[in-house]
């Protein structure tokens, strides 16, 4: 890393390329992530956004919240479109970053083939997945990214089934399998880690992939003011792991001192309110395996906490939680 690369909030440029007046819900995690990504990427950036919350709230017709060029076409082709934009710029001799910012639906499910294609061709583009763990823009439908047990409108809670029955897809492993130039997971609550990784991705050339966890207030049934705290708890409980992949090697960039029980993360969100002990144990066991996979079996490794039914998940407050 050279000396003039930024790695803290203080060093960040005070130029906003993502401006006020967009229509995101109060407390939107995607807006936080995109705002800071744009501050770091700067003016020489071309943004492509497929169908997602981001295009709906940042491009309220006829306005745009991006002060850079913004393009939009269909849902499934983020990888292909940013490849094309980069090719056109190369041809015309334009220098700059081409970035595609897709949601989890546009990355995990619908856009996976175009993402895989671009990664395999080692295109010189930056692909960012803002992951809010369901299709929030169309009214909270499950995606490949929705975690186990979560309520969505297509994984309802009732007598027969209770929330999503499958685990979250590990899209980072899929991307890493293409051996990209750079891939990293980001959290909006770990500021310096976030800044350092975006900065690193900006200065590398080749296929770069960033995966950001972005809490969603209406979809996760949370309080608007808690978005950042929830993102932080996601890391502390192991629901989200911060690591980066470069030169053929994955390396964790932040390791929590202790693994907090997953119930601390779940009880802040109405979408998990219904979960019973069996489901909690299933999720916790899966988390433990994920924890060991990322952080290894060190001697100092805290023992994985198995939920024993002591704590109520019930959220007390907004009666609309866990609709």
């Amino acid at each position: 890393m050279t000396a003039d690369e930024i790695s803290t909030i203080k060093e960040m440029p005070n130029n906003d390329y993502f401006v006020s007046g967009h229509g995101a819900c109060p407390g939107c995690g995607v807006a936080i992530a995109v705002n800071n990504i744009m501050r770091i990427l700067g003016s020489d950036t071309t943004v492509y956004v497929p169908a997602s919350c981001l295009i709906v709230f940042s491009a309220l017709y006829p306005t745009s919240a991006f002060r850079t060029p913004l393009l939009f076409t269909a849902f499934e082709n983020t990888g292909a479109v940013i490849t094309g934009i980069k090719a056109a710029q190369r041809r015309r001799g334009i220098e700059g970053t081409v970035v595609g910012i897709a949601g989890d639906g546009g990355t995990f499910d619908i856009g996976l083939q175009a993402l895989s294609g671009a990664a395999e061709r080692q295109e010189d583009v930056l692909y960012i997945c803002v992951d809010n763990e369901a299709y929030m823009n169309t009214g909270i439908q499950r995606s490949g990214s929705t975690p186990f047990g979560a309520w969505t409108t297509t994984t309802p809670v009732g007598k027969v089934t209770q929330g999503k029955r499958q685990m979250k897809k590990d899209v980072m492993d899929l991307v890493i399998a293409h051996d990209p130039e750079y891939a990293a997971t980001l959290s909006i609550a770990h500021y310096n880690d976030f800044i350092r990784k975006v900065e690193k991705a900006k200065h590398k050339s080749g296929f770069r992939f960033l995966h950001v966890l972005t809490p969603c207030v209406p979809g996760w049934r949370t309080e608007a003011s808690k978005s950042v705290e929830i993102a932080k708890l996601a890391v502390e409980t192991g629901m989200w792991t911060l690591f980066e992949y470069e030169e053929g090697e994955a390396r964790s960039t932040y390791k929590p001192h202790t693994m907090r029980p997953v119930t601390e993360y779940l009880h802040m969100q109405g979408r998990f309110r219904h979960m019973d002990n069996d489901d909690l144990n299933t999720l916790q066991r899966w988390l433990c395996a994920k924890w060991y996979y990322h952080y290894g079996h060190d001697v100092e490794q805290p023992a994985c906490a198995i939920y024993n039914g002591e704590k109520e998940l019930h959220f007390d407050g907004d009666p609309l939680h866990g609709v």
Binding site: G21, H22, S43, S64, F66, R67, T68, P69
Partner: peptide, 20 residues
């Protein structure tokens, strides 16, 4: 051009006219 876009009613950065 980036320096011409501020305050334009449509196009880049124009969402500043939406008083949220």
């Amino acid at each position: 051009e980036p320096e011409h876009i501020e305050g334009v009613a449509v196009g880049p950065g124009s969402s500043i006219q939406n008083m949220t």
